[in-house]
Computed example of a mutant assay.
Amino acid sequence: MSDNELRWQLRQLPREIDPPRDLWPGIESRLTRGVPARPSRPWRGWAVAASLCLAAGLAWQLRGPDAPRADPQASVVQREAEAMTREYEAALGQFDGLPLPAPIEPALATLDRSAVEIRAALATDPQATFLLDQLRRTYARRLDLTQRALTG
């Protein structure tokens, strides 16, 4: 049988077929009977709570008295700030001994104070990762201003 013949036969089939009988009464009777209730297990909640308490107790005991309490993200932020400061100081070291023009010294002092304040804020709140970006921008501005003042 070719594809055209099969298509012709499919087109000849009726579009809708009514069921031989009304199905709703059977569906309605099954719905009104209801689903049998699951047996009540009140101990299940207590078992879950006891398991969680046991897990918390084991974790607390395995932690030990001298376990570090430092937040890993905080130490990463601190290390990043320290590395950034070392790179900044190394870059600024290129200009040691060169005379800076007097008019830009107040701006440089302000940027230096800002960097100190940002590092102090990071030490107080090591979770404040946005301060790393602020420190990077402050160091970049300080280096840029120094380079422009000395190189013209």
Rank of each mutant, 00 (worst) to 15 (best):
A149V: 12
A149M: 10
G152R: 15
R119E: 01
P42Y: 02
M1C: 11
D71C: 00
E89T: 01
R69N: 02
G93I: 00
R7M: 15
S40G: 13
D133Q: 12
A102K: 06
D3M: 14
G57V: 04
P25V: 10
R11T: 13
L54F: 09
E117I: 01
A55C: 12
P126S: 09
A107V: 02
A81I: 09
T110S: 12
G93P: 02
R30I: 10
A49D: 03
R113K: 12
L111K: 01
A59R: 12
R7L: 15
T110M: 09
D144I: 03
R15F: 14
E82K: 01
D144S: 12
L54H: 06
P19G: 13
P39T: 10
A83V: 01
E89I: 01
G34T: 05
E89S: 02
L132C: 05
D66K: 05
T32L: 13
E28Q: 15
F95M: 00
G64H: 02
S29F: 12
R30V: 10
V35R: 14
R63D: 07
Q12L: 07
I27H: 03
I104K: 02
L145R: 04
L31Y: 10
L135H: 02
T110A: 10
D71W: 03
G97M: 00
Y139W: 12
R142Y: 05
T138G: 06
A59T: 13
S75T: 14
P103R: 03
W46I: 11
T124A: 10
S114F: 02
L122F: 04
D125G: 02
T138L: 05
G64S: 04
A47N: 08
G152W: 14
T138K: 08
E16H: 15
Q73P: 06
V48R: 08
Q61M: 14
A56M: 11
